[in-house]
């Protein structure tokens, strides 16, 4: 089985990388962008039957820094 973990900055946490991407997009002439936030996608290949709780523990202990980041787990059918 596979799972995807999306790690994003919590709302309110400044995202200088997102801001730089925003400016670069505008520099390329793209208009109408009101905000950009950058995050991470981590794909896990897991033994069948790995519980959601186990994946959540991985997120809390390592994959996300919950001081500044939120995470969302998406289980993917092979």
């Amino acid at each position: 089985m596979k799972a995807r973990v999306f790690v994003t900055l919590k709302p309110g946490v400044l995202d200088p990388q997102g801001k730089a991407i925003h400016h670069a997009l505008e520099g390329l002439g793209f208009g109408g962008i009101t905000g950009v936030r950058a995050g991470k996608l981590i794909e896990l290949e897991l033994a069948d039957g790995t519980s959601e709780a186990a994946i959540e523990a991985m997120c809390r202990k390592l994959l996300a820094n919950t001081v500044i980041e939120n995470f969302r787990i998406e289980q993917v059918a092979d």
Binding site: L14, P16, Q17, N65, V67, I68
Partner: peptide, 17 residues
């Protein structure tokens, strides 16, 4: 130390990048 939870907060990318 912040990542280990021995100190509070987090150290993020410099504001000026």
């Amino acid at each position: 130390l912040t990542e280990a939870g021995l100190l509070p907060g987090a150290l993020m990318r410099n504001a000026g990048l």
